[in-house]
Every structure is written in C-alpha cells, then in structure tokens.
C-alpha cells in the first residue's frame, strides 16, 4: 500500500486532535506516515501517533524549523514527496496548514485542495462552499494530491500500528529562512479547547447584550467542555475578542455540536458554521433565519434558557 503523508499539527510537542483525525482518514487511503516537524518530539508523541495508525514517523525535530514561518515545513514535506512518492499528503486546514499546503503545491508542482470536509477513494475531496449552500467533490489532476482537511471531518479512531521512526536531517534553504520568528506570544487558553478544533462550540451574538453577559455563554461552554465563539455583532461591539469570531471573516468551525444563542443567522455567520453536525439555536425571535438549519431550537430569552440549560447539564454530569 502506498504511503500517505500526514503532517503532525502540534504546539510545542503537544499533538492536536486534528492530527489523529487525519491519521484515521489516511488509513482509508493508504498507509499513514506521520511527519513531525519542529522541536518537542518525545516517546509519548511517538506512542500517540502509532496508536492512531502511523506505520512510519518521519522526524525532523531541529529547533530551527520552528524559527521561521511556514517555509521549513513545506521544504520538509517537499523533500519527503520527492523521496517517497506518497499517494497523497494531508494537512490540517488551519490558516497555517493551508499556507504549508500552498507552498508545498508550488514546490512539488502539485494541485492543492483546501477545506475538505471528507476525503474518499482516489483522494476525491468533499467540500462545502458558498456558506454551505453547495456541495462539491474535487480532485487533484496533476502531481501529488495535497489536501487540507478541516478539523472534525472524521472522529479519531485508534488502530495501533508500528510507528517506525525515521530521522530526517533537513538543511534549510536560504529562502526558507526569510521570515524569522523573533517572539512567540502564547495566550492564556483558560482551559477551553481551541475554537477550530473543539468538538462542541457555544456561540453568542448580539442577543447576549453585553460583555458581562458573555459569562453565561462561557458557563454553558464549560459545562460541556466546549469552546466559546461569537458573531461579528458581538466581537465588533467589543463584548468578546476578535479571534473568537465565527464566520466569513472569522474562523470556520465544523464541530459535532454548535449551540448559537442570540445569533440571527446571517449568511456571513453561517459561512463559518454550516457544516456543524448538530445545530442548536436559542433565539427570542421565531423568525430568525438560523432556525432554518437548526436540529433543535428554542424560541425564548437566552438569559433564561442558557443558565437553565447549564444547570441541567451540570445536574446530569
């Protein structure tokens, strides 16, 4: 079976869930080989990748790889593509993942498909475009298929494999050293999962009413182990930080469960959440367009409904 390269997405050695999803997906396409780039590799990391099906693990853990933007990782993958002729390459469709995919595509003269929500036989990718209005199947026709897959496309399933390690010594080109990271600022995560990766997202909109009231959205999120999101109306009002905005100009999320409170459902908001598997809507206006795509909706005041919901969940938990 031919190899499928999976770029490991990790923050300083901590492997992100999306990597396990990609390994799961790669097993249906060929033999998964994980590609580790940057410092932080450990026995625990090796064990985790093997547990989720990595037959091989290519390790390039030089400090230097993390010191420059994107290009070193594209260079590493390009070298492996040249040496191993894999059947395809999967990366996470995060902002950075897509950039890596883009540079890799140019380097290897290969087509690239971004934001896949699924990948089937022959690396045919499923996409959801125009704010979820149209489903498309696309494929790469020249070179090695390079596909950036959205987090939560597949539930991660363990399937232990050999996880044979192979060190890769990478000598960076000068052009890969053009953009140097001089400082890395890590924000307090507050214990919540990351927005684009979270299995559950609870978002608040203009109906929340104030920055202080976002506390009830956060409490609901915490009762579910969820990430918090916000509509643009809420971020523009300064009630919640911009990086949590969901939608066309914000993050795209595709969680198992999306709960929207006080969000009307403008097309630009839907563009960022329409591929969520289950959608729950709480809004006092029965005509709010978001109810059209809700699996379960409550017409009511979120200031009543949300705290009661949190209380119920805590009772059950």
């Amino acid at each position: 079976m031919s190899e499928v390269l999976v770029l490991v997405d990790h923050v300083e050695g901590e492997i992100k869930k999306v990597t396990l999803e990609l390994l799961t997906l790669a097993r249906s396409l060929g033999a998964p080989s994980a590609v580790w780039a940057g410092p932080g590799y450990s026995d625990a990391a090796r064990a985790r990748l093997a547990e989720f099906g990595a037959e091989k693990i290519y390790v390039a853990d030089a400090e230097e790889i993390a010191q420059y933007v994107v290009a070193p990782r594209a260079e590493l993958l390009a070298r492996l593509v040249a040496d191993r002729s894999p059947a395809g390459v999967l990366v996470a469709a995060t902002g950075e993942g897509k950039e890596i995919a883009g540079r890799l595509a140019v380097k290897t003269d290969s087509g690239v498909i971004t934001d896949a929500v699924g990948v089937g036989d022959g690396f045919v990718a499923d996409l959801s475009i125009f704010g979820g209005g149209v489903n498309v199947r696309s494929r790469v026709t020249r070179g090695t298929p390079i596909i950036a897959v959205r987090p939560n496309a597949t539930p991660p399933v363990a399937a232990p494999a050999a996880g044979t390690e192979e060190k890769v010594a990478l000598v960076l080109s000068d052009s890969a050293r053009a953009a140097r990271v001089v400082e890395r600022v890590t924000q307090e995560k507050g214990g919540r999962p990351e927005l684009t990766e979270a299995a559950i997202v609870v978002s608040g909109g203009r109906g929340v009413g104030s920055a202080d009231n976002f506390a009830i959205i956060e409490e609901l999120a915490d009762s579910l182990g969820a990430a918090v999101g916000a509509s643009r109306a809420a971020t523009d009002a300064g009630w919640y930080p911009h990086q949590f905005q969901v939608g066309q100009t914000g993050k795209t999320v595709s969680p198992q469960l999306y709960i929207a409170a006080g969000i009307s459902g403008a097309i630009q908001h839907r563009a960022g959440m329409q591929t969520s598997k289950t959608i729950v809507v709480i809004n006092k206006d029965a005509e709010a367009p978001l109810f059209e795509i809700a699996d379960f909706g409550v017409v009511g005041d979120l200031h009543q409904v949300v705290p009661r919901l949190t209380e119920e969940i805590r009772k059950r938990g």
Binding site: A105, D109, S110, G111, V112, I113, V124, S128, G132, G133, V134, N135, V136, R137, S138, R139, V140, T141, R142, G143, I279, V281, I282, A286, F291, E292, I293, A294, D295, F296, G297, V298, V299, G300, D301, Q304, V305, V306, P307, R308, L309, T310, E311, E312
Partner: peptide, 27 residues
C-alpha cells in the same frame, strides 16, 4: 488546472428540526 471539480450539487436541505417555545422548560 492542477485540480478539477468532479461534480457538485446544492446541499440537501437539513432535515427540519424541532423548534419549541420556551415555557420555562426550554433549558
């Protein structure tokens, strides 16, 4: 092009969900 659209279709409408009115028991 290096890639092609194989086919496309309008997203099937999501199966109509349940919408209830809060009577104090919405949560």
């Amino acid at each position: 092009a290096w890639s092609e659209v194989v086919d496309f279709a309008p997203a099937p409408p999501r199966a109509a969900g349940t919408v209830i009115k809060d009577e104090g028991d919405g949560g």
